[in-house]
Design a protein around this nucleic acid. Structure first.
Length: 603
RNA sequence: GGGGGCGUAGUUCAGUUUGGUUAGAACGCUGCCCUGUCACGGCAGAGGUCGCCGGUUCGAGUCCGGUCGUCCCCGCCA
């Protein structure tokens, strides 16, 4: 007989009755009746009830074994009597009468129970992550992550994409987030950087002729964390294709997303061909470049209506070149006064000076600002918003971009407050036509608004003839439920257009050559037109799992302050290791250690 | 770097508004009882620097100042 198991805990059924079986697993739960002892034995595959009778020599040992200890039992599969069948359990029709009992690994008292799904402090969970991962919810998330990766590979290879590995030790990139640096032993004072994304490598592979690239690529960025952004490292489904238009790429991504969400979640996909929203329109209607289109409440521009208004807040905003925007919260007129006060309190907490509102009740406009409105303005409002009796209007007024963003957050607040957001939906959209450049008011200069590798719409001619701030890029984002999953672009593969684009952003030709030597060189030896995208793998799994925090779908995440509480990273290193990277100079090692304020490593 | 929430037993939390005897409950832990449970049940017990430092007060978990930790957000994220 096998030393550990003849069956798994989840597979025993009625047809195994009378067989002698061996099971190994964790003690999930014990029910000690003094005269008879029940042990729920758990492994990866399920749960089985083991019964220990008091005449057995190991009865005392078994009754003392603590939850989560690993044991091996041998015994006979017995059919349960009808009264004792547990219909909740797949193995509930049988139990195993224990004849041999062995503790393989005794467990100490636990920092938190594994047999119940309760909330525990995250630092405790991360310190004992190996235990936390035994919880069903976390385990299911990790399995979902595995299936997501597997299905992605299946889909992508089925579509003719080639999977690559690109370097982890590479060079520091000139733009973007902070790099993680790795000191070089052979070249003291020199550093590798961990890649923020394999951006340049995948473009080089296109230039090498591989046509369709993909990689579930590790990316490293030294940024502060968020609920949906783990510090340090994350994964992207990195994709690049040659000889394509934007439309060709959208088809591939729509197919991948529909496949993943159809097979791995219960969310209903609102539209399998994702609607496309130009960036400018997204900002005007939703106040963000990642609109949540599971619900309406789109913003309308009523600046023209209030150009001559007696209501100074609105007229003033328009006179100063700003905007007056309005949201029609259909049916909200009957909400309590508290509802409107809470909405205003929210707007103020986001930085607004106030939140004007009007409720249409009994054929009249009611609310604090209604009395300022002329008949013409009332008509203008109604035609701009299609408002009818029972609706409520919420206003934002001020500088245009600021007002859009603020009222955009009010929109999401109202969507939640009015229960308009259906959690069972997956509402994808493309945001397209991002501007190529933007004005940096602090440094008073034009700069790239996304990444410098995008192809400007209209090519070289657009750069030469248009106002740079009017030039659009072949740059796009894919958004789901208000979460930005990915940015991508049709790339700029033409050295002459690169030079012109960088020139507009204030860099000379030498800068391009020095900053991006690989691409610069490669694009002089026959580069195919190409483009791609890189959806965030972790965020997709988050959406599939319905988890609000990215750490719940990562087996061993860093905590918010970028520490690994289990492994103790980051940590100080031996003098020997410091000597290696400081050119064997002992004096330098001492100065190095003295100079750095020694932030304590993780205990 | 900045803002907000939270910090009381191993854990989840009550108590803080209005300062006043020995700081409670549940789960977990330890011991005892229990032969059909499946979140088994019953009895008993251990377990607390109320995050830390200082202040006000006859008296501080409770009020004040500072500080630390943690989570969320802003900045940051080509």
């Amino acid at each position: 007989m096998h030393p550990y198991r003849t069956h798994t805990c989840g597979e025993l059924r009625k047809n195994h009755v009378d067989q002698t079986v061996k099971l190994s697993g964790w003690v999930h739960r014990k029910r000690d009746h003094g005269g008879v002892l029940f042990i729920d034995l758990r492994d990866f595959y399920g749960l089985a009830q083991a019964v220990v009778h008091p005449d057995r020599a190991f009865f005392d040992e078994a009754s003392r074994v603590r939850p989560e200890s690993v044991i091996t039992i041998t015994g006979q599969v017995v059919a349960r009597t009808p009264e004792t069948v547990n219909s909740e359990l797949p193995t509930g029709e049988i139990e195993v009468t224990v004849e041999e009992f062995k503790v393989d690994s005794a467990a100490d008292a636990l920092p938190f129970p594994v047999n119940q799904e309760l909330e525990y402090p995250e630092d405790t969970r991360l310190t004992y992550r190996f235990l936390d991962l035994r919880h069903e919810r976390l385990r299911d998330n990790i399995l979902l992550r595995s299936r997501t990766a597997q299905l992605t590979r299946e889909y992508m290879t089925g579509r003719g994409f080639i999977e690559f590995h690109t370097p982890i030790l590479t060079s520091s990139s000139p733009e973007g987030a902070r790099d993680y640096l790795v000191p070089s032993r052979l070249y003291p004072g020199h550093f590798y950087a961990l890649p923020q994304a394999p951006q340049q490598f995948k473009q080089l592979l296109m230039t090498s002729g591989f046509d369709k690239y993909f990689q579930i690529a590790p990316c490293f960025r030294d940024e502060d964390s968020r609920a949906d952004r783990s510090p340090g490292e994350f994964y992207q489904i990195d994709i690049e294709m040659s000889y394509i238009t934007q439309d060709d790429l959208f088809v591939e991504i729509e197919g991948l997303m529909v496949r993943l969400f159809t097979e791995l979640s219960n969310r209903k996909i609102v539209a399998e061909t994702f609607p496309r929203i130009p960036y400018r329109e997204a900002m005007e209607k939703f106040g963000t470049d990642k609109p949540d289109i599971r619900f309406g409440l789109e913003m309308a521009d009523v600046s023209d209506v209030f150009r001559e208004s007696e209501f100074k807040v609105f007229r003033g905003a328009v006179e100063k070149g700003g905007a007056v925007k309005v949201i029609n919260a259909s049916g909200a007129a009957e909400q309590s006064r508290k509802f409107f006060d809470d909405a205003e309190a929210f707007a103020k907490s986001e930085g607004a000076k106030g939140l004007a509102w009007i409720a249409l009740r009994d054929g009249e406009m009611k609310g604090p600002v209604a009395k300022f409105l002329s008949e013409t303005e009332r008509q203008g409002l109604i035609s701009a918003t299609n408002a009818k009796d029972g609706d409520a209007l919420f206003f934002g007024a001020g500088p245009r971009d600021e007002t859009n963003q603020l009222l955009g957050r009010v929109r999401v607040y109202l969507g939640n407050a009015l229960n308009l957001i259906d959690e069972n939906l997956a509402a994808f959209c493309w945001v397209v036509d991002f501007p190529m450049f933007e004005w940096n008011p602090d440094e008073k200069k034009v700069e790239f608004s996304h990444n410098p590798f995008s192809m400007p719409q209209g090519g070289l001619e657009a750069l030469e003839t248009q106002d740079p701030l009017d030039v659009l890029a072949l740059q796009y984002d894919v958004v789901c439920n208000g979460v930005e999953l990915s940015s991508g672009a049709i790339r700029n593969h033409r050295p002459d257009i690169m030079v012109k684009a960088f020139e507009i952003a204030g860099y000379d030709r030498a800068t391009v050559e020095n900053k991006f030597p690989a691409l610069w060189k490669a694009f002089h030896y026959g580069a195919p037109p190409h483009g791609g995208i890189a959806p965030g793998f972790d965020r997709i799994v988050m959406l599939l799992a319905g988890e609000p925090n990215i750490r719940e779908i990562i087996a061993f995440p860093l905590n918010q302050r970028a520490q690994d509480l289990l492994m103790g990273a980051p940590s100080m290193v031996d003098d020997r290791q410091l000597l290696d990277i400081l050119g064997n100079n002992k004096r330098l090692v001492e100065e190095f250690k003295k100079a750095l304020t020694q932030k304590p490593s993780v205990e």
